[in-house]
């Protein structure tokens, strides 16, 4: 299977980052970047990256299952991640998550019917001092009140 020229370039560079014979080290970055482009980690991606890293598909599966950011099923176009860990919890993270469920009409690790949004209750994302925090895709949003959350979602809804 082929990826975009840019991604192929990225992969080519990656493989030069490690000591001779240790190219397997590129696996996790490759999985992350491939997921960003393909939308999820499909069986094809698994076999392809296994080939490129010189390991078995099973060895790739072992890795995928371990990391919570690697998904086999497609996420929404906008993956909304709400932190409810301690610092966020103290300042309304849990209420924010419940609000998000209502606002998007979906629950943990679910995707909206139109495939636009997916929701995930996540662990500390390193925004504790600006809590409650959420990430939409890779973008951070800090001190998110339910109102601010609605504005963010509505804005995204407008885009499409």
């Amino acid at each position: 299977m082929n990826f975009s020229p840019q991604l192929e370039q990225k992969f080519a560079d990656l493989l030069t980052h490690y000591p001779e014979g240790r190219q397997r080290a590129a696996l996790i970055p490759m999985l992350m970047f491939a997921q960003d482009e393909v939308g999820s980690i499909t069986p094809d991606v698994v076999t392809e990256l296994a080939k490129r890293c010189g390991i078995t598909p099973l060895q790739v599966d072992e890795v995928i299952g371990f990391y919570s950011m690697l998904h086999r099923k497609p996420l929404g176009k906008y993956h909304v991640q709400v932190c409810t860990n301690i610092s966020c919890l103290l300042v309304g993270g849990e209420e924010l998550y419940e609000h998000a469920c209502k606002k998007l009409g979906i629950g943990h690790k679910q995707v909206t019917a139109d495939g636009q949004f997916s929701l995930e209750e996540v662990e500390c994302m390193g925004a504790c001092s600006w809590a409650p925090a959420i990430q939409i895709g890779y973008d951070f949003h800090h001190a998110v009140s339910p109102q601010k959350f609605d504005q963010l979602i509505d804005a995204l809804r407008k885009i499409q």
Binding site: L58, Q59, D61, E62, I64, G65, Y67, S68
Partner: peptide, 9 residues
């Protein structure tokens, strides 16, 4: 053979 592995966490 390497036919067995560990998945999930």
């Amino acid at each position: 053979v390497g036919a067995l592995g560990v998945i999930n966490r």
